[in-house]
Design a protein around this nucleic acid. Structure first.
Length: 688
RNA sequence: GCUGCUGUAGCUCAGUGGUAGAGCGCGUCCUUGGUAAGGACGAGGUCAUGGGUUCAAGUCCCAUCAGCAGCUCCA
């Protein structure tokens, strides 16, 4: 007699004891085929596990389609990987080895013989041996004290430290044993390593112990695993495909920007083609700025140190700014006095000597324009906008492509308003962000409300102001009608913010648009307006940038469109291709007509075969090709080829022009790619 | 900034310590063609930079610079 209770609540009874596999078979042959293992009361069991007794057991049949099953299997594979490394290298110490979105990793310290990429084949071979041994994963429960003793006996000091520090509240801990390998682990694990189908080591990198840069650095071994080889191969293929969409890779062909060592790391030189896109985007948003009552200002890219002492930028963020510019006379004087560099730094910090700084933000300049006149409540809200270029000293290891740079242009604006106007103004800002994202078809983003970290001292201003500002951000985010997350520690130093975060081609997240509420800088700069009561009042500030930075936005766009920009943004909208040189004169005539109509049309009149010209135009992301041959010359037509939909047949030149003009006017977005691969990602909760 | 990897022709990459290579692209010529690669010939290099080891360094060692992946950071 055996009885099982299935997840849907139904109870199945069997005359005799029964294996999990047989239960699955009794439900359906498909389920029996797909079944990987079972779960009794949440604990994994093998398919040949025997169920017996009168009392019904809670059974779940796990199949490869189960998302949690994949995570469980990958975590077991992480144990196999760690075990393999320990077999191959001496004195290996283990840290954490969780599952992540695209696979798993294990943080390992191998002080005597660090892991190198060359070791991967040997590790993979050893892993396969372990899988083939087919030793079960067995769970052991131990008290805290016993657990510490076990880890000490295993010579795993990191585990001991973690139990003592990180797991101080746990009274009982679990281990998983497989053969000689024993590891502190929450689980669950697959019942048999046979479920581990295909795996591959991907990369190795440094990772700080417990994510703390002041602690030792371990080696993080990234890998992935799937239930079968085909799924693994498909995953690796998707990663390769995604990497081809990387804006840095595509830019080699598109030539939108150039970074030159001689100019500096992280400093973008826009080519005419890239500058064109940037200008189009600026024009686009400028229409909406005008509609929303913004006023354009222009301000310089440097300012005096004192300005940034007042704002708080210089004292709080010295390390992430370009060093200050000291005036020549002052420098000479200090040199004569034998002033040391550290003395110079201190004098600058203390305000004893002045200088200039490349601006890390535009707000102080805009604030000074606000403060340059007396303002009445009747003037508010005041909205100053500027495509302002700022400079920040990002750490060298962080810089790359267009997404993380040292000089960038924000589509910045600062709004000064009364407390009563705040909600409405924030709403207008959010609308603007949604307009730009919507226009690009960028709908795969998440909203993050960045709050202050109560334990950090990096913020300026009073708690009361922060509370008000944070509540305003929460309310505004809620009004978007979308899920949003609240994240302490993500605020700007002067106030909380609402960020729009998108993913790049390999799953990394980037902040684009941002709206920030600020009660603090108006205090620091002593801004005011005269209210209806004839008394001075403090305005509230909003900092906002719908694109975020032009550099990062365009970087993300290149990947979003896979290089194929919509017609209205594309520096090359079409190309005239001659069938042979005999049609060159007509080709020139056609090109001239398109140009006269305001379209950006290039030509390919070389003595190449048509197929070759088309192939090149396709690869170079030309949206439309206009093929002209003797037939077209005779009929006054062009044969239109759409890059996406292929040959559209002949049409008159005017028709073709009208077609393109309409597509431009409608700002049609025709292609978009979703980020469906992830090399990094969130940890699954299967490690302590 | 930290750990690891990488740097050779415009691009993608081969290259045992012994005279620098391929494919694509580029140029010239032939070819004159109707929707994703026609053919021939040719040019193109301080092997990232600076030191070192060696009879001899693209190759081995050190440093610097830059790129890539991750970690940390991102006002």
């Amino acid at each position: 007699m055996a009885s099982v209770k299935l997840p849907d609540g139904s109870i199945k009874e069997f005359e005799d004891s029964v294996t999990v596999k047989k239960v699955a078979k009794s439900i359906g042959s498909r389920l029996a085929k797909d079944a990987m293992w079972g779960e009794i009361d949440g604990q994994p069991v093998k398919l040949d596990h025997l169920i017996e007794g009168d009392a019904p057991v809670n059974l779940k049949i796990i199949t490869r389609k189960d998302v949690a099953a994949l995570a469980t299997m990958r975590h077991s594979c992480a144990h196999v990987m760690a075990r393999a490394v320990m077999r191959l290298k001496p004195n290996v110490q283990l840290a954490f080895g969780p599952t992540i979105d695209g696979g798993f990793y294990y943080d390992i310290e191998s002080p005597d013989d660090p892991i190198k990429e060359d070791d991967f084949p040997a590790i993979e071979a050893e892993m396969q041996k372990i899988v083939d041994l087919d030793e079960p994963f067995e769970r052991l429960e131990r008290s805290r004290d016993d657990s510490i003793q076990i880890c000490q006996d295993l010579q795993q000091p990191l585990k001991v430290e973690h139990i003592e520090e990180g797991l101080a509240d746990e009274t009982s801990l679990s281990f998983y044993q497989q053969g000689e390998f024993l590891d502190l682990c929450r689980g669950p694990h697959v019942p048999s390593p046979k479920s581990i189908g295909a795996f591959k080591l991907l990369s190795i990198a440094g990772a700080y112990w417990k994510g703390d840069e002041n602690r030792q650095q371990l080696q993080r071994l990234y890998a992935t695993a799937f239930f079968d080889k085909k799924a693994l191969d498909e995953h690796l293929e998707r990663i390769e495909e995604a990497k081809k969409r990387d804006h840095r890779v595509l830019n080699k062909r598109l030539a939108f920007y150039h970074i030159d060592e001689d100019v500096g790391q992280g400093l973008i030189l826009w080519t005419p083609r890239g500058a064109f896109i940037r200008q189009k985007l600026q024009d686009f948003i400028s229409e909406h700025l005008a509609r929303q009552g913004y006023e354009q200002v222009f301000t310089p890219q440097i300012g005096k140190l004192d300005l940034y002492r007042t704002s708080g930028h210089f004292p709080y963020y010295q390390d992430s700014q370009y060093p200050p510019i000291v005036m020549r006379d002052q420098l000479n004087l200090l040199a004569e006095e034998g002033c040391s560099c550290s003395e110079l730094a201190n004098k600058m910090k203390d305000g004893e000597i002045d200088g200039y700084m490349l601006r890390p933000m535009n707000c102080p300049h805009h604030i000074k324009i606000y403060g340059s006149q007396q303002r009445s409540y009747r003037d508010l809200p005041i909205r100053f906008c500027e495509f302002g270029t700022v400079y920040r000293w990002e750490q060298s290891g962080e810089i790359g492509g267009l997404t993380r740079v040292r000089g960038f242009t924000q589509d910045d604006a600062h709004l000064f308003c009364t407390e009563d106007q705040l909600a409405e103004e924030v709403k207008g800002c959010l609308e603007l962000v949604e307009i730009v994202l919507g226009a690009m078809g960028l709908d795969d983003y998440r909203v993050r409300v960045g709050l202050r970290d109560p334990d950090s001292g990096k913020y300026v201003g009073e708690a009361e102001n922060w509370d008000r500002a944070e509540q305003a951000c929460r309310d505004a985010a809620a009004s978007l009608g979308r899920d949003f997350s609240e994240e302490p520690g993500e605020a700007a130093f002067y106030g909380p913010k609402i960020d729009f975060v998108v993913r790049d081609c390999i799953g990394r997240e980037w902040q684009l648009g941002t709206v920030q509420v600020d009660y603090n800088l108006p205090v620091r700069f002593d801004l005011n307006y005269i209210g209806a009561d004839n008394q001075p009042h403090r305005p509230v500030m909003i900092h906002r940038a719908p694109f975020g930075s032009m550099e990062r936005f365009i970087g993300v766009l290149i990947e979003h469109f896979a290089g194929a920009f919509p017609l209205w943004l594309n520096p090359e909208q079409g190309r005239v291709l001659t069938v042979s040189e005999k049609s060159e004169a007509y080709g020139r005539e056609v090109q001239a007509k398109f140009k006269k109509a305001g379209l950006r049309i290039t030509s390919d009149f070389r003595s190449e075969k048509l197929g070759a010209k088309i192939r090149e135009a396709q690869i170079e992301m030309t949206p439309y090709m206009f093929v002209v041959g003797p037939r077209d010359a005779e009929n006054g037509t062009v044969s239109v080829r759409d890059r996406l939909d292929g040959d559209q047949g002949a049409m008159s030149i005017d028709e073709a022009i009208a077609k393109l003009q309409q597509e431009v006017a409608d700002r049609v977005v025709r292609v978009k790619h979703k980020s469906d691969v992830s090399l990094v990602g969130d940890r699954v909760d299967n490690e302590y």
